[in-house]
């Protein structure tokens, strides 16, 4: 198991390197001269040249890249070009907000999807099955921003049930919970469907297995057979799916955060790109990539917990 994690971590090195290259190129290839952006529109060419030197922009590209990497390795992500704040500090705050959103989303969407999928499988071809499947197709085919706007319009604006702008404090406070409800619902909505469908297919498959017949032959209650024997096995592909969908989820988070002004990494990234604030954009993209890798690592850990055969491979 430990070996597997080490292997995973090793695999993530090239991914991180790729993201660093991408972030760096973003800065190099973006239209506009960063030195000029920093200097402001009224600066003289001398001043701009001065700033360019200070920023190391006069050095060869490879040297710049090396400097960039060594800075990042030390946790120095530079300063925002717009408001001169530390990118690392801004990101630290934003990452907490995004992690909250992810957790709140997964905390309801995964159990709900698993429950819906299991019930649909048990009552295969019944009414409940059809309703669940229709719901999950709707969830998959509607874009996040549409669901977000819909929920915001009705639950937030019209009926004034829940706040829909920004974060209301840490998750464990009532205001925090109230504020996160709509964004978490929105983001979760695109996730419930795939989880429900995968669970349904997986449970149906497992119910045909010989060991289910054994469990029944022992005289276990049908509920026990489903939950303890079928579901535990059926969850293995579901966990894989969650891992595969991590990127999709992060993409959804970017949109959701923008809609609800949720102060997370996604919103930060969008804002930074729109404002040509390249150090901030770089940092935000890097942390989204790290989030992706972390989710996959957690999935691997879960996988090992669920399937004892993994540990012995």
């Amino acid at each position: 198991m430990g070996q597997q994690i080490a292997y995973r971590l090793l695999l993530s090195v090239p991914v991180l390197l790729g993201v660093l290259v991408f972030g760096f190129l973003l800065l190099k290839l973006a239209p506009g001269d960063p030195a000029m952006v920093v200097a402001g529109p009224s600066a003289t060419p001398d001043v701009v040249e001065q700033i360019r030197k200070e920023m190391g922009l006069d050095q060869p590209t490879l040297v710049q890249f090396w400097r960039y990497i060594s800075r990042v390795a030390q946790g120095d992500l530079g300063r925002s070009m717009i408001n001169n704040t530390s990118v690392a500090e801004e990101l630290a705050l934003a990452m907490v907000a995004t992690a909250e959103l992810m957790i709140a989303c997964l905390a309801w969407a995964v159990p709900a999807g698993i429950a819906m999928g299991t019930i649909a499988a048990v009552f295969q071809r019944g009414l409940i099955d059809r309703v669940v499947m229709a719901f999950s197709v709707a969830g998959v085919s509607m874009p996040v921003f549409f669901i977000g706007l819909l929920l915001m319009q009705y639950l937030g604006y019209k009926w004034q049930l829940l706040p829909f702008l920004g974060r209301g404090g840490p998750l464990w406070t009532l205001e925090g919970l109230r504020h996160i409800t709509l964004p978490a619902m929105t983001l979760g909505f695109i996730f419930v469907g795939p989880v429900a469908r995968m669970t349904r297919a997986s449970v149906l498959d497992v119910l045909k297995a010989d060991f289910i017949r054994t469990a029944r032959a022992k005289g276990l209650r049908e509920k026990t057979v489903i939950i303890r024997h079928a579901l535990r096995n059926a969850l293995i592909p579901v966990v894989t799916l969650v891992g595969l969908q991590a990127g999709y989820l992060l993409g959804g988070a970017v949109v959701t955060e923008s809609i609800y002004s949720w102060p997370g990494v996604g919103r930060l990234a969008v804002g930074a790109i729109l404002a040509s604030d390249m150090p901030l954009a770089q940092g935000a993209i890097l942390s989204l990539a790290i989030a992706f890798l972390v989710i996959n690592l957690i999935v691997d850990l879960l996988y090992g917990l669920l399937d004892p055969r993994v540990q012995h491979r």
Binding site: F211, R232, I236, D307, P308, R309
Partner: peptide, 8 residues
């Protein structure tokens, strides 16, 4: 080979 639950 398949009559026992692989994860228990």
């Amino acid at each position: 080979m398949t009559s026992l639950n692989p994860v228990a």
